[in-house]
Amino acid sequence: MDGTLDHVMLRVTDLDESLEWYQTHLGYEEKDRYEGDGFTIVYLGPEDMHEDGAMLELTHNEGADDLEVGDAWGHIAVRVPEDELEERYQQLMDDGVEDYRDPESCDYNYAFVTDPDGHEIEIVKRDYGAEWSIDHTMIRVEDADEALGFWTRKFEYEHTGRWEADTFSNYFVKPDGAADEEMAVELTYNYDGRSYEMGDAWGHLCVRVDDLEEDWDQLLIREAADYRDPESNDQMYAFTKDQDGHEIELLERDPDAESLFPF
């Protein structure tokens, strides 16, 4: 299965405020927009993002003005040049972004800010990828072996790295042969056996596939959850879930289409 991580979706309470935040502070531009019945979806990303770089999808539902950011959802991480972490963080502070976890508190290896809805954004140092492009998305899992098995067996992803501490471990997975600029999934496992709440502010990860029907059938053979099949979505997309209930969208894009959306 050749599935590139296409985007990560977050729900927001005030779309205009969120768009202004990401466009002002991260320099994102609007890639496409879909106005549905009672909801709006906007794709965002850096102007010069890699062709297989992941976009940020912001979804706003009418009347959704009290979203809960659960602890099963972790963060997205965005890239800055290796020697510019402190400078970029200070610029965000000067521009009025909330001081959440500064570089000093993170041993100058990374930093964190939060967007208007409380979604955490990690700032990581990288020598590749467009500035502020999405490096990885972190989700918390209750069983590391099951989580790694899900991504490596069902999606044929590679286990590309790990970081182990006294109380938790981080595992990274990515499509086989993916470019450095593509997004990875970070699986965080805490050793204390805790469980997590999803919350309704966390949306999903999206995997872009070559053949929706064929890849969906392959996932079912591999015993992935039959959550929302292609037929129930007018053959435009489908959804499965991992062992912890994180939603994963499958989407096939027409490279010649004028819109990024299959609607």
Rank of each mutant, 00 (worst) to 15 (best):
E214S: 14
S232E: 10
R208E: 15
R126E: 03
H50A: 15
A257R: 09
E62G: 08
G45K: 06
F261S: 04
R88N: 14
G27E: 07
T114Y: 05
D99M: 13
T40K: 09
G199H: 06
H136P: 06
D192Y: 00
F261C: 10
H119L: 15
P116C: 11
S133G: 10
E197I: 00
Y237P: 01
P230Y: 08
G70I: 07
H246K: 03
Q243A: 12
H7A: 03
P262K: 02
W163E: 05
D99L: 09
M49A: 12
K174A: 14
A224V: 09
A238N: 02
D135G: 07
L67I: 10
G129L: 11
R126A: 02
G118E: 12
E47A: 15
M198Y: 06
V69F: 05
W163N: 10
H246A: 03
G118Y: 15
H25Q: 03
D166Q: 09
E181D: 13
G203M: 06
E68R: 08
Q23P: 02
L15G: 03
E181C: 05
M198I: 01
L10M: 11
I248K: 01
Y227E: 06
D16A: 15
S232H: 07
A77R: 02
L26Q: 00
A64G: 02
E214C: 01
A238K: 03
T4Y: 10
